[in-house]
Design a protein around this nucleic acid. Structure first.
Lengths: 229, 229
DNA sequence: TGAAGGATTCTTACGTTGTAAGGTTGACCT
DNA sequence: AGGTCAACCTTACAACGTAAGAATCCTTCA
């Protein structure tokens, strides 16, 4: 097995280093400034060298979404963020606020994530933790599921079909759920429930129903404020 | 004054025709397929001809956002959409659903609108109508204002600072509010109220407070569902 | 009738982008 | 010493947005 052959005269490139530099560049000058040549310049290499660490520009953007959502997940799951919270609402609330401060550092992120067809896999630990908190708080899986949809825009900055096209193939979906089970037990369970509820899995939720649910939630909340004002 | 000089042998171009073709193209093949040359091809002209009707590609995208939001506003304000509604919530609910069906036809729209720094002016009639409905429903301007923020993602597909950078200059803001007054009385009034409430106008809301308000709305609504399940 | 004038459209050209193809380098293992 | 292979660079090309200016066409007035 050949060992890696880093040059002695400078830090070798790597997927992580490329993505980190891309995030820094996008933060500083926006997504528009993120070109392969410019990014290479920041890393003191040539554009084509980047292609050894990311497949192409699209993969680079996928990676960016992954990194940012990962940052959000990390911030949300930091125990310090929710220390001393008793109510499940308080935990979820603080997590959403933590997500927001991360998004604030990367204003280009919502648009980027929204543009990808699939949310990056780094959302799963976050959703898993949220569902866990809610279920332990007595919400039950169906409500926790709806909550994830309702909170989507608070966590990632946009609404609209969080899990849209995904997989049409039913068997592939079942396998995906199986893969999820060991590390994401709540999400796996939620997927099962969703199958019975909306004839879809994580991949195919009844987004219309979810939309209407969230809408009613907001309107009813506003009505309550109107009455007690 | 020279009259327009359209060619006899074919329909002349126009800003509206360019934008319409751009919407059709984006709907069919996505925003990525929307290039000046390609769009020109659809219109059976050369790329450079487009520049007489839109300043540049960025202006084209601005125009696209304008058209889509205009479509949304039109669908929402269609009296048929809200006929027979007594409750203000029902009116607003139906408008949001109408907005959603329009967005469904233009899946690229939320990302596009979110990417522009300012929402297109075609939102104003929509917001005006929503505020009017809510105020007449007994909500009061402060609550109607919050409602617009809370409903942002239900109407346009994304959250996150609907009116972000806008104008720093205080005088310019006052003038903008003046211009609004004749056609958008409720929005103009709302802007005044916002100045006192959050030390900002339409241009500078306390987005953090709005975010937290919406978040609590959703969480409290979910909690109510938990209890009564 | 026809020439001017001005809006519209097209031609050509340039710089920048993403990336395919293939050459070069240098650390490691025999 | 020489071979191997990942990492990296050079060159090249098609497609993009768009600047500059020529060509085209309708209108208007002489």
């Amino acid at each position: 097995m050949p060992a890696p052959a880093p040059r002695a005269d400078r830090e070798p490139l790597s997927r992580a280093r490329v993505l980190d530099a891309a995030v820094v560049l996008a933060d500083a000058e926006g997504l528009g400034a993120l070109t392969m040549r410019r990014l290479a310049g920041e890393l003191r290499c040539e554009a084509m060298s980047l292609y050894h660490h990311v497949a192409d520009k699209n993969a680079l953007l996928d990676g960016l979404a992954e990194v940012v959502v990962g940052e959000i997940a990390e911030a949300c799951l930091d125990p310090g963020a929710t220390a001393g919270s008793l109510d499940w609402r308080d935990v979820v609330r603080r997590r959403c606020l933590a997500a927001r401060t991360v998004m604030h550092r990367h204003p280009w992120a919502p648009g980027l994530i929204a543009a990808r067809s699939q949310p990056p896999p780094t959302v799963y630990p976050l959703f898993e933790a949220l569902v866990a908190t809610m279920v332990e708080g007595g919400c039950g899986y169906p409500l926790a599921h709806r909550a994830i949809h309702s909170l989507g825009s608070m966590l990632l900055g946009f609404t609209q079909e969080l899990f849209e096209p995904a997989v049409d193939d039913e068997q592939a979906r079942d396998e995906a759920a199986q893969d999820l089970a060991p590390t994401m037990p709540h999400l796996a369970h939620l997927a099962e429930v969703a199958v019975h509820e909306a004839r879809g899995s994580l991949g195919i939720c009844d987004t219309q129903a979810e939309f209407e649910f969230t809408l009613r939630l907001i309107l009813d909340g506003l009505e309550a404020h109107r009455i007690t004002r």
